[in-house]
Design a protein around this nucleic acid. Structure first.
Lengths: 335, 335
DNA sequence: TGTTAAACTGAAAGTGCTTTCATTCATCTT
DNA sequence: AAGATGAATGAAAGCACTTTCAGTTTAACA
């Protein structure tokens, strides 16, 4: 036969006695071919040293079968759980999941400018990051199917929660449980204009209910702490050791609530008797440690975002959607 | 309708009033085209912003700058932390991170068949999954730079820990702390031949030290429980409510240790006074809940694996390495 | 003026792969 | 036992170009 020419799928097909379609399938969606056939084909491939030509593939493939996720570098469990939702939904489809972890504004900007132009993604999910209008324009004009989580823009699909309302729910719950003096621990200030800041809204919602109920939230009971464990721990310590310490503390994230719990334990305080704690997110761990918190169904938001891009890829004429995910209070043992 | 879909050679042909062949020639051998025609075509190309799409993509696929990670579907925090290590290392390079979550043997087999051949990846990291020799062969013969975590094969780079030793460390620690009756909770049986099972080794190491010290580990104190919360909780409940309950329990993973802690709390038992608990992994949460555990430095294993593939990509002649990561006991409040 | 070679150009046949659609055949249902 | 369902597979129709080949102009020359 042709000695020098590199083997094509036709050669593989001939050697393994199946059609070229099957070869292609073995390579691209292996789960759709019988495992016996698959091994037979793989043997032929190995024997011939077959390597599919990228150029030809690119041509034949109208879509790349890749979906990207731009996410803040996943230190926080909440990002991970969203990611898990995305992965879960995607694993049933034949889509590759490409992660772009962001830890600086520059990096985000870099991704946002190159991704839509390079066009080797069918869809994009942007988690918990603010996207400037200019970038939105670019995404749209390049027909990149995008969904935003925790941020919204009228031209793009988005999934958000009502953080203000979340804060209110917490306050209502605490009041109803009989608590009367409160503390707040969260990352209120904006360290970076591209990292989303839902915390302020949570705080404001919380505060508004308190105010309406005629209850105080003295400034000294409001602690600013970065998300990181260390910083939260210090703030928690201050909060728990002050003379007239609050009887209930709302932490703007579960992780911070856990820091409070840890400090309380060190101080030999009992939860919720000495101090009650409410978190926000309902990460997996919240259940393990019996933390009362606001569930925002992280996995679901990820799943849904994947669902949305997939839907738009299948039918780009679909209308833009803005989904508000419900929030509810999960009462466990800390209040 | 082709509103803004990237233009093809056909669009250019139509706009400039010549055939596609001419467009192609203008691009590939401009000297063979009349200069008038050529300018006309060039104008059309500019006007449409035409970029030969397939070519661009094929070029992009030459040097992929992509690194893949095959990982069990990330329900467990330990996988996530490894992933985070990988992402952290990669974010400094200009590499894309592609995730292939595995939740069945079929799926794994599928990835392993197609990935090395398609050559769409410069390197591959396989986490906590057993890889059959046949697949290893293929990876090697296709020159796919691979590193294995928690599994090893002499022909591939690997990063492992000594689980047996880990089990021993725990036993030694507990004995030294004065505990004399023990329990074990873990996922000992093999549900699947491709999911790595370090738990048995941990158990055996644990048991061996006990035996050498002349201490008992009665069969009824050994509980088999799946990784999932529910299952572990049940097992923990049995362990904690039996007549002569052990005074110290070794859980084969931190997550399972957390389940034990939760059940203990529900039963109003004090840790470590009523029962001591030791975990394994040292996930982020372990610190939050003050769990004594064996640190296997998950982030680091991820970081290192990325380092290794990167190194091999830069210089494929590098020798195969097998790295044993050290294990040490982190004593916190549960023992 | 008629020839003819050179210069262009378009139709159509590849290129190596993916994907849709239809077909086959084994497996449930009822 | 008949029909429904679903998995596995192949035939054939793309995909976005490139290249060959043959036809048409044009220019040049006798």
């Amino acid at each position: 036969m042709n000695t020098k020419k590199s083997p094509t799928i036709y050669d593989v097909a001939e050697l393994s006695g199946v059609s070229i379609s099957t070869i292609s399938r073995v390579l691209n969606s292996p789960d759709k071919v019988n495992s016996e056939t698959r091994t037979k084909v793989m043997e032929a491939i190995d024997q011939l040293g077959f390597v599919p030509k990228a150029e030809a593939r690119a041509r034949a493939m109208q879509n790349t079968n890749r979906i990207g996720v731009i996410t803040p570098f996943f230190t926080a469990p909440s990002f991970v759980q969203r990611l898990r939702g995305v992965a879960g939904r995607l694993s049933r489809e034949n889509y590759e999941l490409v992660i772009y972890p962001v830890d600086s504004e520059e990096q985000l900007q870099g991704y946002l400018s190159s991704i839509p132009v390079m066009r080797n993604l069918d869809g994009l999910i942007i988690m918990s990051l603010a996207v400037e209008s200019l970038n939105v324009e670019r995404l749209i004009s390049n027909k990149m199917e995008t969904v935003l989580i925790e941020f919204s823009h009228d031209q793009l699909n988005s999934i958000v929660i009502d953080d203000y309302q979340g804060g209110r729910i917490v306050a209502e719950h605490l009041i109803q449980k009989g608590y009367r003096s409160f503390g707040f621990l969260g990352d209120i200030e904006l360290p970076n204009r591209n990292i989303i800041h839902p915390v302020r809204s949570r705080f404001e919602g919380f505060q508004s209910v308190l105010k309406d109920a005629g209850l105080q939230l003295p400034a000294k009971n409001i602690k600013q702490a970065f998300y990181a464990h260390e910083s939260s721990r210090e703030a928690a310590h201050e909060l728990l050791t002050m003379p007239d310490r609050p009887s209930a503390i709302f932490a703007a994230s579960d992780n911070q609530a856990l820091s409070i719990m840890k400090v309380a334990r060190q101080l030999n305080m009992r939860i919720p008797d000495d101090v009650a704690v409410v978190g926000f997110d309902d990460i997996d761990m919240a259940d393990y440690v019996d933390l009362t918190t606001v569930r925002q169904h992280l996995d679901e938001s990820g799943r849904l975002s994947a669902e949305m891009v997939l839907g738009r890829i299948a039918d780009p004429s679909r209308a833009t959607q803005h989904i508000y995910l419900p929030l509810n209070l999960i009462e466990r043992q800390t209040t």
